[in-house]
Design a protein around this nucleic acid. Structure first.
Lengths: 210, 210
DNA sequence: TCGATAACTGAATGGCGAGTCAAGTATTAG
DNA sequence: CTAATACTTGACTCGCCATTCAGTTATCGA
């Protein structure tokens, strides 16, 4: 053949990869939150995303890869949804209360995110990659809470004490109580979790004469 | 037929069921702690118990049944191992510290039990039967901590405040921090969890002039 | 329209593992 | 020893589902 095709600039279709990946990961998170990792089916993710199973594998070689990416996506989303918390001005103590409020397992996105996290925790006990994702969120969350407490102390609206330790107490408490809320424990509906966290802040963080 | 076999008292072999079930459930817990529910294999449980897979199915019709029983077994074991905490005499505040110490995810039995619990949490978000198991432990644990705090208050070694709420703060914190310890979070090794819990008791539970 | 590549499809494959079962073995009282 | 029942085995079946792949379609610049 004399095909002197070399004059043709290779002009492929523009990439839709970024968009498609998001679409798939979003569906994956939804399915993980709904049915758990245990019963996650690649075909189901595909359907939920309006695609064929083949397409999912076009973007993610294995199920494991898909799941890990979904966890990271869920993590990134959590951060994204809470960017405003960093910039927020005003009374740091009040801001701390808002931060905690925003982390209560509520409805919609928040509930979904918590469920996915709970799955990650279980799976993370074995998978180092998932542990790294947890490390990231845990770290960022702790930093946010610690800095806010420190700011309140600086302002005099919070009593003295190691802010990192206080932050660890608070986020540990939030995680543990959230788990019980997710499990629909009778003794721990969302409202009680809210009150319990608020009481902690009032009693241990806020300055006495507040 | 002339088979007047009715004079034979039906005398079966004595049951080894109780023993065998324990043996299987213990192996199941070990496997759940080691590999997670995700990769739990009935055949593997059988091998770990020194039995054939057929025998496991002789005592547990389905895998789900086995798993649920294993969770209950793990729960019952936790209670059993901590019976002494109820009876223990002496300074209630000191007892509270011992209780928390005994719940730190340490080595051996304790670590295994925590891992199994973490799996139960994830699974419990969908399975009502497992939620009931959680409800039971959570309830008993909360009662133990609440009563101990109340006793300390009665004695004057703990400050005033709703003991149930304080108990919820403390056990929530323990659960959340334990999760991070299990995940090997850099910022939360076992020793830091110990310190953090101790600090909570010192600062929020213990009476000022203690 | 063509050539080139990206994106997509869904039927087919292959492996895995829960659950079954027919065939044993063990222990008892009589 | 015999009959009765409890217990045990492990090879086999059968369905499910991740993954593959040969083929199709879409979109681009020229």
């Amino acid at each position: 053949m004399t095909t002197a095709a070399r004059y043709h600039a290779p002009v492929p279709r523009p990439s839709v990869e970024a968009e498609r990946r998001k679409q798939i990961l979003d569906a994956a998170c939804a399915m993980i939150a709904k049915h758990g990792l245990q019963e996650l089916r690649v075909a189901e993710v595909a359907t939920a995303a309006g695609l064929s199973s083949g397409t999912v594998h076009y973007y993610f070689d294995t199920k494991k890869e898909l799941v890990n990416a979904a966890f990271e996506y869920n993590f990134a989303n959590s951060l994204e949804r809470r960017k405003w918390l960093r910039r927020a001005a005003g009374d740091p103590l009040e801001r701390l209360r808002e931060i905690i409020e925003s982390y209560l397992p509520g409805k919609g996105k928040s509930l979904r995110a918590w469920r996915v996290w709970a799955e990650l925790w279980a799976e993370g006990m074995r998978d180092p990659a998932l542990r790294a994702v947890n490390e990231s969120l845990y770290g960022q969350w702790r930093d946010l809470v610690r800095d806010t407490i420190a700011a309140a102390q600086h302002e005099g609206s919070a009593r003295e004490g190691d802010p990192e330790q206080l932050a660890n107490m608070l986020i540990g408490m939030v995680d543990g109580l959230a788990m019980q809320v997710l499990l629909h424990a009778r003794a721990m509906p969302q409202q009680r979790m809210r009150e319990t966290c608020a009481a902690f802040i009032d009693q241990l963080v806020a300055a006495k004469g507040d």
